[in-house]
Nucleic acid binder design. Structure first.
Lengths: 336, 336
DNA sequence: TTTAGTGACTAATGCGCATTAGGTTCACGG
DNA sequence: CCGTGAACCTAATGCGCATTAGTCACTAAA
């Protein structure tokens, strides 16, 4: 800025006013300063800006997953991509960190907060009994929870969520209409808010229809567990006629396992994946899947966070209910 | 720091000396200051540190991919995970950005540099005729190129690379030994350095053995193109007996396409994937794949970058040659 | 007894920006 | 002709830290 001031023949303050749209300089001078700044390729030092109270111009994103669990998962990359798109417009940086568990994640938030490193954070994989909302409230760190249900106890946090309950209800509706009465839901990690929501909804739906042979089994989202659970339930007595998998990886692995056991898909057993991706079109038959726009999900979350940073108040935003894309893996229940 | 100074009954300078291990304070005072800092949960403001010449304590990572291409790809997430692991030890942040193309990527580097936002960057997907090394040289931004071959013209850049040439040679060796003479390599994006290296090596190996029916076809890495190219080459006259795919997504899609066309794997056509992941074990038969440790790849790259930041000189590090994991998709060539 | 030296600390400065408090000039009204 | 305000600009300050240049007391050497 000193250089710009010298080149333009004005004081540093004038440069600051000119470049930040503050009053106090003539339009003429403003233009001249702008031009010089342009020529010099000047960009404000984020450090200096941050130091003089402008915030860090950075948003944090922590992914709490053991390194070996980071497998084939298109969701996060797409989510991040959407987040970026919105943040980039505002020249906000995304500070990304992978940690082992939620405790480490909390430590990262504390550190970022103490270091004034981020202006806000995006929280994923909310859990039942989650320590993070309390912490973020305590720290006063603006935050958007992605995938959590609206939560009255944390009025400071925004929430961007998909209606899992509604989606589950519609999936069960569809399967029921096809004659399915024995349904197993191969769920994701226990303790995750959306896992629990889906499980609760499935139970409620089953109860409503008087279906006793409907249950959920939790897993770690891996192909291995997806296949293992599939084998276990299909080898039992009165095996299910429909399987709902909480992600695409397990759905594909599960469908393969079923086929190996001699169960034809969808003649003997229908398969639904709760995540749509190229994976679902890599097996025969193609898997019916709940499709949602993860990139848009990310955009929405980022928009909520920037709104919060702009001083807006927190709110809960519901993204469209995932849509069931019927492909070849769902059909009429055997014997129905 | 002012608070700490007050609580400990010393000057701010003393606090700074004490906490940074500088001489000028007694051990007794140092301990007291440390303790007070601990109690107050103090962490230095990164902005202030950066402003007083300590660097931004941040490393940049740009992924130049159109949003819709960010599909099922375990490589990057694993790579980032490994990078993180090393950076976290040093309390270095990772600034992550997704952009459309290399031109945008260069713009991001320029901006980061001007804003003093990062101390160094990690560059992925190096290309033939890549503008990035020149730019980074010009900016004087420490950088590690991931996946590029050593490059004499940029003595300032470190390189972490895998020996694609060696791996390709060994794959061709193996296939040749199994009697394969007609081999098609379904390569990735043209222009990527490693794509070109593999193509060149394949051609050389074919030439050495006098094989005329060996070729490479470039794609965009998508399952769709993988399948399309597979169909095209298998439907031609004298179809290949072995297919080498540059990633797991195409390998799986290609294997499925081959099966659909009535080509049994591996009886009629052998399939090798250049990327190993859970995907390769989701189809029957399981795919033989070149396996490498992406997490460790990331760790190595991050270590090289931190070495550079510590003032070390640039070097080229070769990671172990990917190992071919023989599974069910490779076999003796029909008629051999 | 003086002097130099050393250990332990404080005061002062600068990093690059935003901002607040002052200045100077000019036009206009009384 | 003075006072007054507006328009435009400059000087000075602070953000939180690292660092350099002192300051002071006390000890060992001369």
């Amino acid at each position: 800025m000193k250089d710009i001031a010298r080149h333009a023949g004005v004081s540093q303050s004038a440069v600051s006013f000119a470049l930040n749209g503050r009053p106090g300089v003539s339009e003429e001078t403003r233009d001249r300063v702008r031009q010089v700044a342009e020529e010099l390729g000047w960009r404000p030092s984020t450090a200096a800006r941050a130091l003089s109270g402008e915030g860090a111009a950075t948003v944090g994103f922590v992914l709490a997953r053991p390194a070996d669990t980071l497998g084939v998962d298109s969701f996060f990359l797409q989510l991040v991509s959407g987040i970026q798109e919105v943040l980039a417009e505002r020249h906000l940086g995304l500070l990304f960190q992978v940690v082992e568990d939620v405790a480490d994640e909390c430590a990262v938030y504390r550190r970022w907060w103490a270091e004034h490193r981020v202006d806000g954070v995006l929280v994923v994989d909310p859990r039942t009994d989650d320590p993070r909302p309390d912490l973020l409230d305590e720290l006063g760190l603006p935050a958007v929870v992605i995938g959590g249900a609206p939560d009255d106890r944390h009025p400071g946090l925004s929430t961007v969520w998909a209606d899992d309950a509604g989606a589950m209800a519609s999936v069960v509706d569809g399967l029921y209409a096809l004659g399915h009465r024995r349904i197993v839901h191969i769920a994701g990690l226990p303790g995750l808010a959306h896992t629990e929501r889906r499980i609760r909804t499935l139970r409620a739906e089953a109860g409503r229809r008087g279906l006793s042979e409907v249950k959920s089994v939790t897993t770690d989202y891996s192909d291995a567990e997806g296949a293992a659970v599939t084998r276990r339930v299909l080898e039992g007595v009165a095996p299910p006629t429909a399987l709902i998998y909480d992600n695409d990886v397990m759905a594909v692995a599960g469908a393969a396992a079923a086929t190996e056991l001699g169960f034809a898909v969808p003649a003997d057993v229908s398969v639904v994946s709760w995540e749509d991706s190229a994976l679902c079109r890599m097996v025969k038959p193609w898997l019916s899947a709940l499709s949602r726009d993860s990139v848009e999900f990310g955009r929405t979350a980022a928009r909520e966070l920037t709104a919060l940073l702009d001083g807006g108040s927190a709110r809960a935003v519901r993204v469209p209910v995932p849509r069931l894309v019927e492909r070849g893996s769902t059909g009429v229940a055997r014997g129905a």
